[in-house]
């Protein structure tokens, strides 16, 4: 049997970070393989956004290294980095004064004409074909987020970092976006690393990282991470949520049967 060897696209090696004198993130180590859809869970203020910003090169670690490809993310020039990593913040300007085509074309900037995916193809993948001339403000909330994702697809990076991409979307758009990300991971070999606050969606991903107070307290497949005692500790709960987790796992399996997972 041939063994599948996946390349590491993103690696945190003993990364520590602080906003002031107090250490906020300590000795964080994990890696992301090519073509993985990995979720990042944790309570508000646990360090999810900080971790994604470190991965994007928006913040620099105080100690340790954030590696993208073969080099530290901070050692690339802006344009080189933008060919490898794309980042979408939690708060997107959904009222930006651009047409869909103008927004998505911005993904071409780092590649300068040699991008692996055309604007039209990216729009087709996210289901916005035919809306190229529409203003962003004319689309639904879910479509606007998909337009931003199309921009990152045109950017053609191997790592896609998404901060709470499913927040404020209703269940239809959550599943649409989730299915889209699964397709991108499967068809384009992109590694997607996204923060979430919905444990139900987390149960459907390839792998989960659970953080608390800037520390990684669990990582692995959803079955092993989403255990009652671990989740109680992560979210400082003082009661069992075993039934809630079991329901989410059941829902996840039901969605798999329905072809959504």
């Amino acid at each position: 049997m041939q063994e599948m060897v996946s390349m590491t696209t993103l690696e945190f090696a003993n990364v520590s970070f602080s906003y002031g004198p107090k250490i906020f993130m300590d000795q964080m180590s994990f890696s992301l393989a090519e073509g993985e859809l990995v979720g990042l869970l944790g309570a508000n203020g646990a360090g999810k956004s900080t971790l994604l910003k470190l991965a994007a090169g928006l913040l620099s670690p105080k100690k340790g290294k954030v590696m993208v490809g073969s080099k530290a993310v901070g050692s690339y020039s802006g344009k080189e980095r933008a060919k490898l990593v794309a980042y979408l913040p939690q708060i997107l300007d959904l009222q930006a004064p651009f047409r869909v085509g103008e927004l998505v074309r911005m993904g071409e900037y780092p590649q300068e004409g040699s991008q692996p995916l055309s604007v039209e193809e990216a729009l087709r993948i996210v289901g916005l074909q035919g809306k190229v001339n529409m203003h962003l403000a004319e689309l639904s909330g879910g479509e606007r987020r998909r337009a931003y994702i199309a921009m990152t697809l045109v950017q053609g990076t191997s790592v896609l970092l998404l901060d709470e991409p499913l927040a404020s979307l209703d269940i239809k758009y959550q599943f649409d976006l989730y299915r889209l990300l699964k397709e991108i991971v499967r068809d384009k070999g992109v590694s997607v690393f996204m923060s979430l606050h919905d444990i139900g969606i987390g149960a459907m991903l390839d792998r989960l990282l659970l953080v608390k107070d800037g520390r990684l307290i669990a990582h692995g497949d959803p079955e092993s991470v989403l255990r009652d005692e671990i989740v109680q500790d992560a979210y400082d709960l003082n009661h069992s949520i075993g039934l809630y987790l079991a329901t989410n796992r059941t829902l996840s399996r039901a969605l798999a049967v329905a072809g959504l997972h």
Binding site: K79, V85, L88, E102, M106, Y109
Partner: peptide, 20 residues
């Protein structure tokens, strides 16, 4: 002009697109 477009989307997106 490209930097101006990117800044219109916010600093984090501009950074992600390779701009300072």
């Amino acid at each position: 002009r490209r930097g101006l477009n990117a800044l219109t989307l916010g600093d984090d997106i501009a950074h992600s697109l390779g701009f300072n």
